[in-house]
């Protein structure tokens, strides 16, 4: 009798167990094991060793450089994301589809290629190379190059969250505000921003995580000068290549904690503001 009332869309138990075991096993081996190893290696000799490794002057300067690069790149990409989403969502114009595709382009470009293009523009053999040398301006192997590479790899993050969100929200509210005499800035701050603030936070969060963690693109343009142009991820490589595993895993653990914090905040935003973020997930 019970068979008659079985939910027809429910998988049989054996299938549930099989798929569950495969999914769980794959995630555990592929994702959780490396994460566990980072923390195990970092704290193998106790918390004091970990803290001492972080307190190395070169490590601290790498942390500082990463924070500075992100502090420049993330706000710039945020302003760009808002401007791009505003013009794409609020107006009709020709070539919009191409514009959206071009904004997404940096996502599909290899990070190393992202670094390479700036070498071709600003490097000694590049377009502006001789001019820059003449005027003693340093872009490559210095902070500007690192910031440029970081901007490129994190370029679409904020725009990509905001565009679908603002397209979904439509223009009615803003147009009503404008008709009632609000200025553009007033309309944005009082009407648009409250509607998109959590989406904006979400985009900034992802942008920031990538900016702090970028390796390939920054590796090409940084020059790897220890204590000067080494960001946190580059410092991990330097320490690892010099067989300073304790140091490498200490910095790696710091970055992993940052990644876990990002994931926690991301999940919180997704859970708390699911409706608002839904638009960005459908695309």
């Amino acid at each position: 009798m019970s068979k008659q009332f079985k939910n027809p869309t429910e998988d049989p138990l054996w299938l549930k167990l099989l798929l569950g075991a495969v999914a769980l096993g794959f995630i555990a081996i592929l994702l959780l094991l490396p994460l566990a190893l980072v923390f195990k290696e970092a704290f193998a000799d106790g918390v004091t060793t970990f803290i001492n490794a972080i307190k190395e002057p070169d490590t601290l300067s790498a942390v500082k450089l990463s924070l500075i690069a992100a502090a420049i790149a993330v706000p710039l990409n945020t302003v760009f994301g808002i401007a791009a989403a505003w013009c794409i969502a609020k107006y009709d114009f020709r070539g919009k589809t191409i514009l959206v595709t071009l904004i997404d382009l940096p996502f599909s470009v290899s990070p190393v290629v992202a670094g390479l293009i700036y070498v071709l523009v600003f490097g000694a053999q590049g377009w502006f190379g001789p001019w820059l040398v003449e005027h003693n301006i340093h872009i490559l192997f210095a902070l500007p190059g690192i910031v440029l590479a970081t901007i490129f790899v994190t370029f679409p993050f904020v725009a990509r969250v905001l565009i679908p969100l603002m397209v979904d929200l439509g223009r009615d509210e803003e147009e009503a505000a404008a008709t009632l005499g609000a200025t553009g800035l007033q309309t944005f701050l009082r009407v648009t921003l409250p509607n998109i603030k959590w989406g904006l936070m979400y985009g900034i969060l992802l942008c920031n995580a990538r900016a702090l963690g970028e390796f390939g693109a920054v590796s090409v343009v940084s020059g790897h000068i220890r204590g000067v142009t080494n960001t946190m991820p580059l410092h991990v490589q330097l320490l690892y290549d010099n067989y300073d595993y304790a140091g490498a895993f200490a910095v790696a653990a710091l970055l992993a904690m940052l990644a876990l914090l990002t994931l926690a905040l991301k999940s919180l935003l997704e859970w708390r503001y699911a409706d608002e973020l839904a638009a960005s997930h459908r695309h």
């Binding site: 994460l35 390796f215 595993y245 991301k266």
Partner: peptide, 25 residues
């Protein structure tokens, strides 16, 4: 929920960290 959040670890974890962890593993 936890399992769902962990899926994005490769997005959030810097690639150099993943690299040295996978290498040691």
């Amino acid at each position: 929920g936890l399992l769902d959040a962990v899926i994005d670890l490769p997005f959030a974890l810097p690639t150099a960290v993943a690299g040295i962890a996978l290498s040691s593993l």
